Amino acid sequence: MSANLMQMWLGQFDRGELDAEDAAASTVAEYEAHIAALERKVGQLTMELDLLKKTPRLRLVNNNDSSSIISGPKPAPSDEDATDRPAA
């Protein structure tokens, strides 16, 4: 809220231009804006939740592969050109 707006409201109040009806209308407008923002957020979160529910869960390990919590899945077999030779 700007200082200029506050000064304008104080001037209106001093002149008797502000009454309870204007103050109530201002409060209602603020509440309606806040409610609209919250409704947009709920809509966004609902769409995200629906998307997450529809997305299949990724399987980290194939059912046919055995794995360990410590070592993870077995490594893929290497090409035929690669051989296990002792280090020279």
Rank of each mutant, 00 (worst) to 15 (best):
V61E: 04
I35S: 11
I70M: 07
Q12G: 02
A37T: 05
E48W: 03
A36H: 12
I70R: 15
A87Y: 10
A37F: 15
T27L: 15
L38M: 12
R57Y: 00
D65T: 02
G16Y: 15
Q12R: 13
M47C: 02
I69H: 06
I70C: 07
L10Y: 13
A29F: 10
A88K: 02
S2G: 07
D79A: 06
D81H: 04
E17G: 14
W9H: 03
P75D: 08
M1H: 15
V61K: 05
A88N: 02
M8P: 02
N63S: 09
S78E: 08
M6T: 03
A33N: 08
N63V: 01
I69Y: 05
R15T: 03
P75Q: 11
A82M: 06
K74D: 08
A88M: 05
S71W: 12
S67Q: 15
L5S: 14
D50F: 10
S66H: 04
S68Q: 13
V28A: 12
R59E: 01
R57F: 03
P75N: 05
D84R: 04
A29H: 06
Q44Y: 06
L60W: 06
A29L: 14
Q44C: 01
Y31D: 12
M8T: 12
A3R: 13
S67Y: 15
D65V: 00
D81S: 04
E17K: 07
P75V: 04
A87F: 10
A36C: 04
Q7L: 05
Q44P: 00
A88T: 00
F13G: 07
S66K: 06
M6G: 06
D65Y: 01
L38T: 03
G43H: 05
L38I: 04
P75S: 07
G72W: 08
A88G: 02
P56H: 01
L49F: 11
M8F: 09
R57D: 04
A24F: 13
M6K: 00
K54I: 00
Y31I: 08
G72P: 03
A37S: 10
A25K: 14
P56T: 01
E48R: 11
T46S: 08
E39G: 07
A3T: 08
S71I: 01
K41D: 14
T55A: 13
K74P: 03
L10N: 13
M6Y: 13
D81V: 03
D14H: 00
K74A: 08
S26L: 14
S68L: 12
L60Y: 03
Q12K: 14
R59C: 02
D79V: 00
K41Q: 14
V42K: 14
R85E: 05
G16M: 09
D22L: 12
L10S: 12
A33D: 06
S67T: 08
Q7W: 11
T27S: 10
G43F: 08
I35R: 14
L49N: 11
D81P: 00
P73D: 05
N63F: 01
D19F: 09
